[in-house]
């Protein structure tokens, strides 16, 4: 997992040298701007790889074998990019991603916004690991939403697709209220500080000409803070990877696939394994 890319900062908020300290997988690292370039180094001053993508700075304690994942939809003209700041959460970075992949909690955690009783049913959807890209994908996910996004009025059934390109990053595509033939892109980039603390950096790429930036950021912050109250109350804080520790149902197919994918790659920072 060391060789993966991880988000560590907002690209427009990196001070010039000596810069800013933060943690990545328990290791202190430093981010700074020098000669117009964003750079990163570890505690010994060793340079770390850096890439800037989707308004965020990504780095790695190892050697990433691939460039950062692509979000082709984000390149489409006419999209607005909405970085939503960051929030620290006392939970495993993997639990934060798994929560992002979950829709069954909408009626109870995002009540009257992303879901509402009695519309609690999760219909059958499709999940697979796309071998070529090595990503987890869930498609044809449908759920009833009373207020699907800032620009949405009234309830409607919304369609989603979810993908997990990195152990601590996920992108979701959902029906765009103002442009039904397109998808809104909403992502969560998670920085593992330690195995049980993380920083979430929500980010969006939307077609929306009417809402103010503050409205869009506020909407996403509200949603994420509602999730945070759940994430800090899951026991254990680590994500159990062995089946049997927790009981999933058909609605949790994405989560099951995510856990399997993590395990098959030995992406276990923030995970609980049998022996523990």
């Amino acid at each position: 997992m060391k060789d993966c890319w991880f988000p560590v900062g907002a690209a427009d908020d990196i001070p010039s040298a000596p810069g800013r300290e933060t943690l990545l997988m328990g290791e202190p690292i430093r981010l700074f701007r020098k000669a117009g370039q964003i750079q990163a180094c570890d505690a010994e001053g060793r340079d770390l790889p850096v890439t800037v993508a989707y308004d965020h700075v990504w780095t790695s304690l190892g050697t990433p074998s691939q460039p950062i994942f692509a979000i082709p939809e984000a390149e489409e003209p006419g999209r607005r990019f909405v970085p939503c700041g960051h929030v620290r959460v006392a939970c495993s970075p993997l639990r934060a991603v798994e929560n992002f992949l979950d829709i069954a909690h909408f009626p109870f955690v995002h009540t009257d916004i992303l879901g509402a009783e009695p519309h609690t049913e999760v219909y059958r959807y499709e999940v697979k690991i796309r071998e070529e890209e090595d990503e987890v994908w869930a498609t044809k996910v449908r759920f009833y939403q009373p207020q699907a996004a800032k620009a949405a009025e009234g309830g409607q059934e919304i369609e989603y697709m979810y993908r997990v390109p990195l152990p601590t990053a996920s992108v979701l595509y959902k029906t765009c209220p103002s442009k039904p033939e397109a998808w809104d892109v909403i992502a969560i980039f998670v920085q593992p500080l330690t195995e049980t603390t993380c920083v979430a950096w929500p980010w969006m790429a939307l077609y929306d000409d009417t809402s103010s930036q503050a409205d869009l950021v506020g909407f996403q912050q509200m949603i994420f803070l509602q999730d945070r109250a759940i994430l800090e109350n899951q026991v254990p804080a680590l994500l159990p990877l062995d089946p049997g520790k927790e009981i999933p149902t058909r609605a949790d197919m994405t989560s099951i696939a995510y856990r399997r994918w993590l395990k098959s790659h030995d992406y276990t920072y923030g995970a609980q394994l049998e022996a523990q």
């Binding site: 979950d102 069954a104 909690h105 009626p107 109870f108 955690v109 009783e117 009695p118 609690t120 049913e121 999760v122 759940i230 899951q234 149902t249 058909r250 609605a251």
Partner: peptide, 22 residues
């Protein structure tokens, strides 16, 4: 009922309802 996904348990601790699958 659990606050996360609303699974509903009776006084004996038995799960009686999973709202995602009514």
């Amino acid at each position: 009922s659990c606050l996360y996904h609303g699974w509903r348990y009776d006084l004996e601790g038995q799960c009686r309802k999973i709202p995602a699958h009514p």
